[in-house]
Simulated scan of single mutants.
Amino acid sequence: MTAARKKPSFGLALLLGTLSAFGPLSMDLYLPALPTMQADLHSSATLAQLTITASVIGLGLGQVLIGPLSDRYGRRVPLLAGLALFTVCSLLIVFQTDVRLLIGLRFFQGIGGSAGQVLSRSIARDMYSGAKLTSFMAVLMAINGVFPIISPSIGSLILMITSWRGIFVLLLIIGLILMAASALYLRETLPATRRSNELGRAFVDMLYLLKQREFMAYVIAQAFSYGSLFSYISGSSFVLEGHFNVPVFAFAVLYAINGLGIIVGTNLAGRLSARRGTLPALKMALYGLVGVGVWLVVTSFIWDSLVLLIVGLVAMQAFLGMINTTATSLGMNGEADRAGGASAMLGLFSNVMGGIASPIVGLFAATNAMPMVGMIFVWAVMALLSYFLIAPRRRA
């Protein structure tokens, strides 16, 4: 039985949606600063992009620790501890002058931020199941989707008045606010009677999920789709600012336009799931992402047009929003007793795949958008193929 089934308050949805957005908060906010941070720290483009990779890997590995811990000890204590770690690391990053130390701190900052990602999904699963879970996940993802829209603009405004370090001052403040709000307003949603009896058992239960083909089909497909997302995240500032000579603030505006696709996609996922089912919505999104990949490669190769690139990226974000909402809902729906572990596995594979994808674009000596859009297409194809290869066949 779920802990509660009444309609959630807007405040709770806003808090959980913001907690789930530590990825955008940790990365999109300072994407416009990557070139200037690279110059200030006398770093290479690859090392600068490794600050993204370190954060992404921390976000993934942290979920593996925090998910089972929350299945054993409840949601509140691991969440507050993670938020505290995120806040402390943000403070330390402000004073860093060595890019290698900054990369290390970004890793631990990611571990702290992972608490918000993994436990927002776990709390949602504690409260809902089935179509209601998909609908609530769509709300959380829509709130989450606002941050990629506003974060680069905020980051660009900060860069106009101070250095990239000011962005991490803002992250410090955000961490403090979320920690206070969670401590004051977020109740425990996992009663003691539903918790794992032993911590070791909670980790074993999480590893058990690796044997579940249907669950892993959702996990792997979502993870490969994150490869497309992070190819875009890590390459967008260099392509738009470097290749197309887009000013920093204009980059933030274009990034915000692209981010609107996430809100459209999550809303569409909720509507399609209610009408046709969550699984058909996921399959439609996987095919759509491949189609967008084809569009991006063909248009970049033939015309190299900024307008056509932006059109394709908006569509890509929409299909990614659909995949994230539906795959998360399907993966979490059957794992009420292992919600923390299931959420951790979804987060781990997605973030690690994003961490792998991020520096790959930087390895190419790009003079156009082809390395970025080429990798978007490759990961999209792998997402589609992996689902159909791993998922057990259903009887007609």
Rank of each mutant, 00 (worst) to 15 (best):
R121D: 00
V139W: 07
D71L: 12
I177G: 02
A180N: 01
P78L: 10
L102G: 06
A81K: 02
S135A: 15
L69H: 02
R121L: 12
A183G: 08
L178T: 02
S129Q: 15
L140K: 08
A84D: 00
P78A: 10
T134I: 03
L101A: 10
G62C: 07
A180V: 12
A183L: 12
Q117W: 04
G155I: 03
I111K: 08
S122L: 01
I143T: 05
F86M: 12
A131T: 14
S135H: 11
D98C: 03
L59H: 06
I57S: 11
F108R: 04
L65Q: 03
I161C: 03
F108E: 06
G58V: 09
L159G: 08
F168T: 00
I143H: 08
R106A: 12
L59Q: 13
I177W: 00
G112V: 05
L176E: 02
L65T: 13
A183F: 09
S182M: 03
I167L: 14
L172S: 14
I123P: 10
R125E: 04
D126G: 07
R121S: 07
L59E: 13
S163C: 01
I161H: 14
A142I: 00
F108A: 09
Y185P: 00
L80W: 03
I103S: 09
L80Q: 10
I111E: 04
T162Q: 06
S156V: 01
D98K: 08
Q117V: 14
R125H: 04
I167Q: 14
L85A: 13
I103M: 13
D126S: 08
L65E: 04
S135Y: 00
G155A: 11
I173P: 01
I174Y: 09
L157Q: 15
W164I: 06
L92G: 03
D126R: 11
Q63E: 09
S55L: 15
L101Q: 12
I150K: 06
V56S: 15
S129V: 12
N144C: 02
V139G: 01
I150T: 13
G62Y: 01
L184T: 04
I150C: 08
R106W: 12
G67D: 09
A138P: 06
T162E: 05
G112C: 08
Y128G: 06
L83C: 06
V88R: 07
S135T: 09
P152I: 09
A54K: 13
